[in-house]
Amino acid sequence: MDVAYALRNEDLLQNILSRLPTIHFASATRVSKFCNLILYQRKLETSLSLSSSLQFVVQEVLDEILSDPIRPHFTIAYIGTSAVDGMIGIVARTGKVKEASVLFMHSIREASVSSMRAAYME
């Protein structure tokens, strides 16, 4: 109990849990309310694959997105041959603006989307 308290106080629990790939992290959400809270932090993840095989592209992009803890509410995917301008959003977790210049597939969380909309509207 002592250790758990100290870990939590010093952000160390978050440091350890955030090293887990998404699949394992998702199961860690059930450990305690605090662990669940860590995962609820919103973030924006983008990934790009330039492979010509569709199946490979999807797998590669998903693997990259899910290599960090994220709870994907949905993904925005762009698959095609022509370049898109890109996407600019505010990562809700850090408050920093992040640009994804070319998107094939986009995994994103709700809050990130609403802040992206807000950014577009302003």
Binding site: M1, L20, S27, A28, V31, S32, K33, F34, C35
Partner: peptide, 27 residues
């Protein structure tokens, strides 16, 4: 060290992770 700790709880059950950190289930 934190990477090492993460490796030790990878693929483990919720109960295992609770015991590992000494966390009580508060749900």
């Amino acid at each position: 060290l934190t990477e090492a700790a993460a490796n030790r709880i990878k693929n483990k059950s919720v109960e295992y992770v609770r015991a590992f950190f000494g966390i009580e289930n508060d749900f």
